[in-house]
């Protein structure tokens, strides 16, 4: 049931016994989660379940009250190049052209901050080839405000790719896009994920998106029950209530219309999104081989 990762190679992400409180309110209640290399993890859950909080903890933007978060064996600490992030908005810097936005990673890691004129010859070629990957060659000299929402998010992905982050975090990156652009970008992201062998941790509130994209689906929810009983006073925070391995067929949206896919969505909706249906902690549907839980007494 437990795994500490000692001796063996480190997983990309190791989250053990993490608790996060805001004041006296418990938001994340003993989260255990390991993510292997090359996994496309989607995290989904009802509003208020703490999925953004979990993302901020992994990112290092906030610190957990208890437990440990390791990224490639390193304590998460503060935000650094160990994890990349693509936000829903504001991922691009408004004062830089698209090309400079992508180059920024090179500049920030290789130049001293008071010598911004030092360039290396290979950088621009690398950035341009990434822009080609995300189909933005034409827009290289444009500023972010001149791009459409979908183009901005593609540029943000290129901006993260140049860093070769061990883990790429995405916080509802397609949440502000219209449905067509959204589906277009989903397929595009799956393609990039497969080719670049990325490890992605993708937070969304859209169940269909989570089921479609992920190679592993995590459901975080506050709607569950345990031995503390059903008294509304019990200070229960979000827990991972389901952990499914998914078969992922990149590049095809046909899967979205299949019965199997629909059934999965319905069962996840029951597991995590319905306040009326509460599973007991011992009956959580943790099917994924990486799934584990340290034992705590309730």
């Amino acid at each position: 049931m437990t795994s500490t990762g000692s001796g063996a190679a480190f997983k990309k992400l190791e989250i053990t016994d993490v608790v996060k409180n805001y004041g006296s309110k418990c938001v994340l209640d003993d989260i255990d989660l390991h993510v292997s290399h090359g996994e496309f993890c989607t995290l989904v859950g009802p509003s208020g379940c703490g999925k953004s909080t979990l993302l901020r903890l992994i990112l290092g933007q906030e610190q957990a009250n208890q437990g440990s978060i390791l990224v490639e064996g390193q304590p998460a600490g503060f935000p650094d190049p160990y994890r990349g992030i693509v936000f829903q908005r504001y991922s691009l810097f408004p004062h830089l052209s698209v090309l400079d936005n992508v180059l920024l990673g090179k500049h920030l890691t290789h130049q001293r901050w008071w010598m911004p004129w030092r360039r290396q010859s290979g950088w621009k070629e690398e950035a341009m080839s990434l822009l080609e990957r995300v189909r933005l060659t034409e827009a290289a000299e444009k500023y972010p405000h001149e791009l459409s929402g979908g183009m901005q998010q593609r540029a943000a992905i290129a901006q993260a790719l140049i860093m070769k982050h061990p883990v790429l975090l995405m916080d509802e990156p397609f949440g502000a896009l219209d449905p067509d652009t959204r589906e277009d970008l989903q397929i595009f992201l799956l393609d990039i994920w497969e080719k670049e062998q990325l490890t992605i941790f993708f937070v969304t509130h859209d169940l269909e998106e989570a089921c479609f994209l992920g190679s592993r689906l995590l459901v975080l929810s506050q709607y569950y029950t345990d031995d503390r009983g059903n008294d509304p006073d019990v200070n229960r925070g979000g827990k991972i209530v389901a952990d499914h391995p998914l078969k992922n067929i990149a590049g095809s949206t046909v899967i979205k219309d299949q019965m199997e896919f629909r059934d999965l969505i319905e069962s996840v909706r029951r597991e995590g999104f319905n306040p009326e249906i509460r599973q007991h902690v011992d009956t959580f549907n943790l099917n994924h081989p990486d799934s584990f839980r340290t034992l705590n007494e309730y």
Binding site: L59, G84, S91, F93, H107, L108, T109, W113
Partner: peptide
């Protein structure tokens, strides 16, 4: 988001402030 983003892109606090 911009602060966090530039930290993940390897910015030091000086680079963040002045670049």
């Amino acid at each position: 988001e911009q602060l966090v983003k530039s930290l993940t892109m390897g910015a030091s606090s000086m680079a963040l402030t002045y670049r």
